[in-house]
Computed example of a mutant assay.
Amino acid sequence: MNMDIESLRSFIACVENDSFTRAANQLHRTQSAISMQMKKLQEDVGKPLFEKSGRKLHLTQDGHTLMRYAKQLVRLHDDTLAHMRQSERPTLLRLGCPDDYADTILPSLTAQLHQLWQNLELDIHCMSSNRIKDALDQGELDLGVITRSPDSEEGLFLYHDQGVWVGTWHPETSISLAVFQRDCRFHQAAIEGLMKQERTFKVIANCQSASALRALVKAGLAIGALAQSSAEDLPILSVQGLPPLPSIDVVLIRSNTPSNPVKETDLLQISRGFHRAD
């Protein structure tokens, strides 16, 4: 037996309206189309469903049985379809994160975001903290990982980090330096600190990528300035003879656009559950 769900829907309308004509009007179909559906449904069931008494329709015993199941089947069909259509819609979340935190922050943060949204479409954009803040203000991002000064209250705290010098350096030689772009706190502190010490140095590269900076340092072409969590296996230099680098807080901020799926309660949950991989 093969029953069409739309035929069952029409059957329910016929019974509830006590008329093929009124059912046709309710379903915006012709009476002949409804009559054909009921004829086909009775053929599929193999038993009569209606009996007429004058102009009124009466259900047979088999019709009463089918009516009970038809309502359940149509409800289950509609609920299933609504759930599946809702599930098909992914939650788009646009995340900005500085490249130097990709190894330390993104794995844990990505895992938490997918726990909050089961059908998540996550777009990750690597850029500096200042560019992330601009993109959030313009509604181009929903969530951002940025650095802030320890005395600032901007964003929701994730963890504390310290700037370090990395590489191999001989104090008697001039300094070759690899740093991040000019809006990086460590870039500013390294350049300004060396200038105050009146040291001779040369910036061999302003890097947008942490992997590029680490590669230059690892090859012995320069020393670098970056967060300790991003140093990986690079040797950390003592600050003796080199200017100190600032400490920073790593925080989460969100845009205030109405379409942003990330709410303040989500930020709190992420902050509480965040554990940076050591």
Rank of each mutant, 00 (worst) to 15 (best):
L95G: 00
L116I: 13
P90D: 03
A111G: 02
E121H: 14
S87K: 15
C97R: 01
T110V: 11
H77M: 04
P90H: 11
M67H: 11
D134I: 12
P98G: 10
P98C: 11
S129N: 11
I132D: 00
V74R: 04
S87T: 05
L116P: 01
R89L: 13
A111T: 15
Q72G: 06
T104C: 06
D99C: 06
L81C: 08
D99N: 15
L116C: 13
S128P: 09
L92P: 01
Q118R: 13
L93M: 11
Q86T: 08
V74P: 00
A70I: 05
L136A: 05
R85M: 09
Y69Q: 14
A135H: 08
D100Q: 05
L120Q: 03
L93A: 02
R94V: 00
L73W: 11
M67F: 15
T104H: 06
H83A: 14
Q112F: 06
L93P: 00
I132A: 02
V74Q: 04
G96P: 00
L113I: 05
R85C: 05
I105M: 05
L95E: 00
L120V: 05
A82V: 10
H77P: 04
H114P: 03
L106Y: 09
H114W: 14
C126P: 00
M84H: 14
T110Y: 14
H125V: 06
C126L: 11
I105R: 00
T110D: 12
D123E: 15
P107I: 03
T104D: 04
W117L: 02
I105A: 03
T91K: 09
D123M: 10
L113R: 01
A70K: 06
A135Y: 12
C97K: 04
D103T: 13
D78S: 10
N130L: 13
D103H: 15
L92R: 14
M127N: 07
T91F: 05
M127E: 06
E88H: 14
P90M: 07
H125F: 07
R89F: 02
H77F: 12
Q115K: 13
H125Q: 10
D103C: 07
A82K: 14
L95H: 00
C126A: 10
D78M: 11
G96C: 04
S108H: 11
R68D: 13
H83R: 15
D100A: 03
R94F: 03
S108P: 02
D78C: 05
R68C: 06
Q112G: 04
Q86I: 01
I124K: 02
Q115I: 06
D78K: 12
Y101F: 15
Y69S: 13
H114Q: 15
C126E: 07
S108Q: 10
L109N: 03
A102E: 09
L122A: 03
P107G: 09
C126I: 03
L106R: 13
D103F: 12
S129K: 05
L95D: 00
D103Y: 14
A111C: 08
Q118I: 10
I132W: 04
A70T: 02
R94Q: 08
I132C: 05
Q86M: 12
D134Y: 06
E88R: 15
M84Y: 12
D79F: 07
